[in-house]
């Protein structure tokens, strides 16, 4: 990317904890803390797509929900356009800002109310934030949005159960688009869809982003999908950022051992090359986030781990340009 970029969202040291109540504990026993997201920081520029990858349970969705203020954050800030802090603003300002922030969900059908027509579903942001809009305008804008996402506008009175998964996801996208938001957080929007439908939905998202100039935070565990859609990629491991870089840089030259292992595991659609490829297999299991390892969280599975890894937590360092890595042996 070239030229000066406008900052849309700056997340600083965002942490989220879940209380875990021990089984058979007394009502007054203090719950244990599960650190789902641990001081995550990143910047998001206007019009760009930031991919967030990581294995299941690494805190991707929790991070998204914390930014959307759907769950409380334990600490940190998220500055919207360098000014207000999303995480500490009062309910009124937040209500205003919700117009700019939308979300697309993992399960297309579950994210739509089965008792509402899709016209009502898509119009919901509009009727919530601008209750005085008259019915004909709502109707017209809903149909326009349905067309934008590739749905037939004459299906406005149908119900979610009458659509396929891919169509339901398009309905979700139309709902997210109707207020022309500046940021859409996509929480694994394609992982519940067929591969062919995945491509359609992703290309639709890219096309819309180009036309409307919004920013996307794209959460996925499919590395090829993320590579296709994002300009920058952030890798999470056990709630920590381990690497964040431009997509090309990250895929061609992954610096963190975890990222390297992830990228080496991406299958190549060519059996010849796939057979020759060496995959860095990681030993062991993902540690429990209830008691994460001391020092570097990745050290229990890291092939390069040494004594220092257990003692010190590696900071997220700039390696060159925008390439940041959290590892003692890089940079």
């Amino acid at each position: 990317m070239s030229g000066p970029r406008d900052l849309l969202l700056r997340v600083e040291n965002l942490s989220v904890n879940y209380p875990v109540y021990t089984k058979g504990g007394m009502p007054w026993t203090r719950p244990q803390k599960l650190q789902a997201v641990n001081s995550v920081s990143f910047d998001l520029y206007q019009g760009e797509t930031l991919g967030i990858v990581g294995e299941s349970g690494c805190g991707k969705s929790t991070l998204a929900r914390a930014i959307m203020r759907l769950i409380p954050a334990a600490g940190g800030n998220a500055f919207w356009k360098g000014q207000q802090d999303l995480l500490s603003m009062d309910a009124r300002t937040l209500q205003q800002l919700r117009r700019e922030l939308q979300m697309i969900y993992q399960d297309p059908l579950a994210s739509l109310n089965p008792r509402m027509t899709i016209g009502q579903i898509i119009a919901e942001p509009l009727t919530t934030h601008f209750p005085k809009t008259d019915t004909s305008e709502i109707n017209q804008r809903v149909k326009q949005n349905m067309q934008t996402v590739g749905l037939l506008p004459n299906q406005i009175n149908r119900y979610p159960h009458e659509f396929s998964g891919g169509q339901c996801q398009r309905i979700g996208i139309a709902r997210a688009l109707i207020l022309h938001p500046q940021l859409i957080i996509c929480d694994e929007p394609v992982s519940a869809l067929d591969v062919s439908i995945q491509a359609q939905v992703i290309n639709l998202l890219m096309q819309l982003q180009q036309d409307l100039g919004m920013s996307l935070i794209f959460i996925a565990h499919d590395l090829s999908v993320v590579r296709h859609i994002s300009q920058r990629v952030m890798v999470l491991y056990l709630g920590h950022v381990v690497e964040i870089a431009d997509t090309d840089m990250l895929y061609k030259n992954p610096l963190h051992p975890y990222t390297r292992a992830l990228i080496s595991a991406v299958p190549v659609p060519d059996p010849e090359r796939q057979r020759k490829k060496s995959i860095l297999l990681l030993e062991g299991e993902l540690p429990s986030p209830m008691n994460p390892p001391s020092g570097c969280v990745f050290r229990t599975r890291c092939p390069q781990a040494q004594a220092i890894c257990a003692e010190q937590k590696p900071a997220l360092k700039n390696v060159h340009g925008e390439h940041k890595v959290a590892c003692h042996f890089v940079g």
Binding site: M68, L70, H129
Partner: peptide, 16 residues
């Protein structure tokens, strides 16, 4: 369920 979460994310009031 996700559609309740979606409504919260949109900013729909609890009573609604």
């Amino acid at each position: 369920r996700e559609f309740i979460e979606a409504a919260r994310a949109i900013g729909v009031r609890p009573l609604t």
